[in-house]
Amino acid sequence: MNSNHSDGPVLPAGCARPGPMSQKLFDRMSRFVYEQVGIKLPGSKRVMLEARLQKRLRVLGMASYDQYVDYLFTEKGFDEELRNFIDVVTTNTTEFFREPRHFDYLTATLLPGWTADAVRLRAQRPLRVWSAGCSIGMEPYTLAMVLRDYQERTPGFSFSILATDISSRALQQAVRAVYDEERVHNVPDQFRKRYLLRSRDRSRRLVRIGPELRSAVRFERLNFMDPFSFSEPMDIIFCRNVIIYFDKPTQEGLFSRFCQCLRPGGHLFIGHSESLTGMALPLEQVAPTVYRRTR
């Protein structure tokens, strides 16, 4: 649904803010968020939720959080507003070359090992990579830079990248691939020159990912709480700084499903603040927050 859709008159600028959200209503919405997307909203997030929902109330011409929830829980509201609501409650924090040691491991260890195995087994096929929880696209485009650079130096190497997120708004920005110039400060100079396009109007201070990389990434919307599978298993899964919003049982269940989608010998990368400790998973650690699927 287009976020500009309105079922009522837009409240004029400067109109009174809605009253505080009751604890009962917050609890109801918290349960709904957990059921829909697996995210736990502790009581400390109530003020955040109020602030983020105010824009949706203005767009829909609603005067209270109760009115919004009553609409959301109707069949029409569920169909038309749920994606906007999910965009409100999800957080899209990301940057290019975030946690750079992962990309160092990819370049120095994983990719040479992959190439050696392909030569030994005489099996030339694309390396399949999944950026799970890709936000506005900075992670998959970072992967595309690293993999394209390796491809240019390695005859016969090819790859495909799938990038998914639950937020329709984030995916729209990822596909557009336009970012503020200040957001690319972590991109190495040689990659900036090769893969980034600067706006002709330099005063706008915008850059866009070049078409070579945009065509290398396929974006799709995916809710981790829905069933998912792939026609062929993945060789690499990046799911970083995503599970911190889930409780422990949801985390373990999600990583178990990731393992089912990961080829034996394939690699899983998680965020440096995350841990798989205590989870019964067919994974062995090969580097900090890097795991390999056991055979």
Rank of each mutant, 00 (worst) to 15 (best):
N2R: 10
P9F: 10
P12D: 12
R17L: 15
G19M: 06
M21F: 06
L25A: 01
F26W: 03
F26E: 02
R28A: 14
E35G: 10
E35Y: 03
L41P: 00
V47S: 14
R52D: 02
Q54T: 14
R58D: 06
S64I: 09
S64K: 10
V69M: 01
D79H: 12
L82T: 08
L82S: 00
L82E: 00
N84Q: 09
V89Q: 08
T91E: 01
T94W: 01
T94I: 07
Y105G: 05
T109N: 15
T109C: 14
L110G: 04
P112K: 03
W114Y: 10
T115L: 13
A116K: 15
D117Q: 14
D117Y: 11
L121Y: 12
R122Q: 13
R125P: 04
R128M: 07
V129T: 06
W130R: 09
W130K: 00
G137A: 01
Y141M: 04
A144R: 03
L147C: 08
D149Q: 07
D149I: 02
E152V: 02
F159P: 03
F159H: 04
I161P: 05
A163T: 09
S167H: 03
S168A: 13
A170E: 00
A170C: 03
Q173C: 08
A174S: 09
V178C: 05
Y179N: 00
D180A: 13
N186T: 08
F191M: 15
Y195F: 13
R200D: 15
R202Y: 13
S203D: 10
R205L: 11
L206S: 05
I209M: 06
I209N: 01
E220I: 01
P227A: 04
F230D: 07
P233H: 07
D235T: 00
D235K: 03
V242I: 01
V242C: 03
P249F: 02
Q251V: 04
E252I: 02
G253Y: 05
L254R: 01
L254Y: 00
L254C: 07
L262W: 09
G265Q: 07
L268G: 10
L276Q: 03
L281G: 09
P282V: 01
L283C: 11
L283M: 11
E284C: 12
V286P: 08
A287S: 14
P288Y: 06
P288R: 12
Y291F: 15
